[in-house]
């Protein structure tokens, strides 16, 4: 029952995050959804990732959102009509999820009783060390991209001085 509540709350938060008209509020709803996801992760037996999700997903990302919204400036909260007709959007999203569910859910594998003997650290640093190493590439690429996109350019500086 607890799980049901968590899931319902999580989906509710997510829905609010997507639906809300104010960006800051949406970011906060997203943080809420992220926190509840972290609880769900903990329930699924993944405490380490839950902690990371809590700090990164609910914390860092929210901070970044707030930063971005601050710099970009909140749009005036005019409710604009969706560019894709909303009913169509609902139908297609439901179809995609529904078909996926219809193919996957009835065949949901029975939970394996085997438990992995290895510790998280072992798996992370030994078995899947390549993924971890590649995160470095991802981070370098991301940092360079952000630097490149946000650097105050010469042209920009010129424009602002005018």
């Amino acid at each position: 029952m607890f799980d049901l509540l968590i899931v319902a709350a999580m989906l509710g938060c997510a829905f609010q995050a997507v639906r809300g008209t104010r960006l800051l509020i949406a970011a906060l709803w997203l943080a809420g959804a992220s926190a509840l996801t972290a609880i769900m992760m903990f329930r699924l037996g993944a405490p380490e990732v839950a902690v990371i999700e809590l700090s990164v997903g609910a914390g860092l990302v929210t901070v970044l959102f707030v930063f971005a919204i601050n710099i970009a400036g909140e749009e005036p909260p005019v409710t604009l009509r969706s560019l894709v007709p909303a009913p169509l959007a609902w139908i297609v999203a439901l179809c995609a999820v529904g078909l996926g569910a219809a193919m996957a859910l009835p065949n949901l594998r029975v939970e394996s009783s085997l438990l992995q003997a290895d510790k998280f650290a072992t798996v992370l640093w030994e078995h899947r060390s390549l993924d971890v190493l590649l995160q470095v590439v991802l981070i370098i690429g991301g940092v360079l991209a952000v630097l490149g996109l946000l650097a105050e350019g010469r042209a920009n500086a010129r424009k602002e001085s005018q």
Partner: peptide
């Protein structure tokens, strides 16, 4: 939005 829609329609059709 329509571009994402096209992706989803593709997914729905293949599924």
């Amino acid at each position: 939005n329509w571009n994402v829609m096209a992706i989803l329609v593709g997914l729905v059709v293949v599924l």
